[in-house]
């Protein structure tokens, strides 16, 4: 029978200490969590999502990784295997790991993953090769964070640090989705010649290093690379859209990164100003259009939250009970 709540005495052979489970605080926005599902069943199959799918607020994008061995994922009749599984709680999957291995599950609230549903349909519900690409960066981090004491030492509960590390994992999940979405969208090379490709890469790098500069306009960029503006535009047409749109998108991404560092000290107004937006209102509009929430909402999502409690007050006991169920094997097997 599954035990009610994860405790340090429940740790399996590959968990060094108690798993990290943060109880839900009803008054705060949903945040990133890592749960560990103990691996005590030889033929364990875990159904993701681990919470009722009929709760619309609970939609999460998840990455599941085995503490050892590999995984296979069954979804809509298709079975894939690899080192980690990316799943959307709106579309359940069944995950099977190497016999006896515990599974670490990173859970990111859906609103924090800035891609539309059709992108998620294409990228979730399958296993990924965790030896390459973003997956090879995310999996080791997830496993380290899931073994509660982790390499960052026994000082679990250093709020700022733990929150930022969780956010780091969530960011890599976002990058994983983006990487796969791009692979799906443009499987072939673009029409550019090798020389043109190198030129584009060089210009991108140059622009990337100067994003906050208000002088970053097509004529200045062209001049810095000794080409005409017309050639510049030609190089940048295609799947990436126009140069100006790309610059705008990169700037918004950097704003999101800055605000996403959390701590509650970043001022939306200051960020907007620094990045050349005419007004904070204009910035908020652009941000919301791209990311589905206001800059301050995003910032608040990323700020420190409380550590787990030894004896939670009664109103969160139910939540803890549910959370415990999430970490236990589901009843049907």
């Amino acid at each position: 029978m599954p035990s009610p709540a994860p405790s340090r005495h429940e740790a399996g052979p590959h968990l060094s200490a108690r798993p990290v489970v943060h109880p839900v605080d009803p008054g705060r926005p949903p945040y990133v969590r890592i749960s560990v599902v103990p691996g005590d069943e030889p033929t364990r199959a875990l159904t993701l999502p681990m919470r009722p799918a009929d709760d619309p607020d609970a939609r999460e994008i998840m990455v599941c990784g085995p503490l050892r061995g590999g995984l296979s994922c069954a979804h809509e009749g298709r079975v894939t295997s690899g080192g980690l599984v990316l799943a959307d709680s709106a579309r359940p999957v069944t995950v099977s790991g190497t016999a006896g291995s515990a599974l670490a599950v990173l859970r990111v609230p859906r609103p924090l993953v800035p891609y539309p549903d059709d992108v998620l349909v294409r990228t979730t519900g399958r296993a990924y090769d965790a030896t390459t690409g973003v997956a090879s960066l995310l999996l080791p981090l997830l496993l380290s964070l899931a073994t509660a004491e982790g390499p960052w030492g026994a000082e679990a509960g250093r709020d700022g640090l733990t929150t930022r590390l969780m956010n780091q994992a969530a960011d890599l999940l976002t990058s994983l989705v983006a990487e796969e979405a791009e692979r799906n969208a443009c499987p072939g090379a673009s029409g550019l010649s090798d020389a043109d490709r190198r030129a584009v890469d060089e210009i991108r790098r140059w622009v990337n290093s100067r994003l906050p500069d208000p002088r970053l306009r097509p004529d200045a960029i062209a001049e810095a690379h000794h080409i005409s503006v017309r050639r510049l535009y030609k190089l940048f047409t295609g799947e990436n859209g126009t140069l100006s749109r790309w610059i705008q998108q990169r700037r918004l991404e950097e704003c999101r990164r800055e605000l996403g560092r959390g701590g509650g000290t970043a001022k939306v107004q200051a960020v907007a100003q620094r990045w050349g937006f005419a007004t904070a209102a204009h910035f908020s509009r652009c941000f919301r259009a791209r990311y589905g929430m206001s800059p301050s909402e995003w910032r608040d999502h990323r700020t420190e939250h409380d550590t787990a409690e030894a004896t939670p007050p009664p109103d969160t006991l139910q939540e803890t009970g549910r959370a415990a169920h999430l970490c236990a094997p589901s009843a049907h097997w």
């Binding site: 690409g133 590390l165 983006a178 991404e253």
Partner: peptide, 23 residues
């Protein structure tokens, strides 16, 4: 893996890495 990812992924990983170093 740096040589094997697309420019768009590279842009994102650059941001991820800077955050990690800042942390």
């Amino acid at each position: 893996l740096a040589g094997q990812v697309t420019p768009a992924t590279g842009d994102l990983l650059a941001g991820n890495t800077v955050e990690f170093i800042a942390l």
